[in-house]
């Protein structure tokens, strides 16, 4: 392979690989911006991958799988919102409980529906949709504009979220809820509704991130399909400073490391492959060192708002 082709292939793979990171991290960011900190990403991605795969397999269409994944992600988001925002229970404990429940449910659902088989059932993977005109551009066309729809979705979504958050009245209200819900509430902003909407939509995005894995990579569901991408997306959210645009940029790094690790494995660089496979996690731990320093975390992140609570003190 000549160098130019190598670079194009690498960048193409990065574009494909960044999708689940972007989707899950934007979902995390969205909930976090109103104060709800989910730690159930890994579980939601698993259950969405499983249920989404099953829906696509049995109903015979990827769109069904996508819808099912969004539905199940939204349901888990709704549960998280209910337990934290309405019942005011500890966000980390609820997040962990939901993580275990969803992770358990993902393999349960698969085993009940499919059972143990020698040859796994397959669904078709997502087709590439070259964009008219743009995909004809030299270099850039191949790298950016010949991808499945999820790639475009991840990019567009990030830009839309940026505009929504920083250029609209509703974005201002949303950010206010995550900084000072009492201030927002005292000016008539519906704090509860905001937290519910962002957590449910956030769950849907994590669901999309999960179902992307069988649809883009493997064509089937396995129990280790997510491999920590849910947890990594939390790190990405911090790395991106809880800003949609920086999350998108940071995702290039996360995806780049993942692609690098796999390519190095294939090309046999003399390092045992196990150490290459550690790379994404070690790199993430390393970038969290500056990441946690510069991230300006929403002030109310991880806490629950109770309008009348102050009175007891």
């Amino acid at each position: 392979m000549d160098a130019q082709l190598q670079v194009i292939t690498f960048l193409r793979l990065v574009m494909i690989t960044l999708v689940p990171y972007v989707l899950a991290a934007q979902g995390t960011m969205l909930g976090g911006r109103t104060g709800v900190f989910s730690v159930a990403q890994e579980g939601i991605m698993l259950v969405a991958a499983s249920v989404g795969f099953l829906a696509a397999y049995y109903l015979g269409g990827l769109l069904y799988g996508v819808l099912a994944a969004m539905l199940v992600g939204g349901i888990v988001g709704l549960l998280l919102a209910y337990f934290t925002t309405t019942l005011k229970m500890d966000q980390f404990v609820i997040g962990l409980a939901l993580f275990f429940a969803t992770a358990g449910f993902s393999s349960l659902a698969y085993k009940v529906a499919i059972g143990v088989t020698l040859i796994p059932p397959l669904i078709p993977t997502l087709p590439d949709v070259p964009l008219p005109v743009l995909s004809q551009l030299p270099l850039v066309g191949d790298i950016f504009f010949r991808h499945n729809v999820f790639v475009y979705l991840a990019i567009v979504l990030s830009l839309v979220l940026y505009v929504l958050l920083y250029r609209t009245g509703i974005g201002l209200e949303l950010r206010a809820v995550g900084e000072s819900p009492l201030a927002a509430d005292s000016l008539g902003v519906n704090v509860t509704l905001m937290r519910y909407v962002t957590t449910v939509v956030g769950g849907m995005l994590m669901g999309l991130a999960g179902v992307y894995l069988p649809m883009a990579y493997t064509g089937t569901f396995t129990e280790d399909i997510v491999r920590g991408r849910g947890w990594l997306s939390i790190a990405l959210t911090f790395f991106g400073g809880w800003n949609p645009h920086f999350i998108l940029l940071g995702a290039f790094f996360f995806a780049g490391v993942e692609v690098l690790a796999f390519r190095a494995q294939v090309t046999n660089v003399g390092i045992p492959y196990q150490f290459l496979l550690m790379l994404p996690y070690l790199a993430t731990i390393l970038v969290m060192i500056p990441g946690f320093r510069w991230a300006r975390v929403p002030a109310f992140l991880g806490r629950n708002y109770d309008r009348e609570k102050r009175a007891q003190v």
Binding site: R227, W231, F238, M278, Y281, L282, I285
Partner: peptide, 9 residues
């Protein structure tokens, strides 16, 4: 985050 990532390592 850091404890869970150490699992994968």
């Amino acid at each position: 985050l850091s404890t869970v990532l150490m699992n994968f390592v």
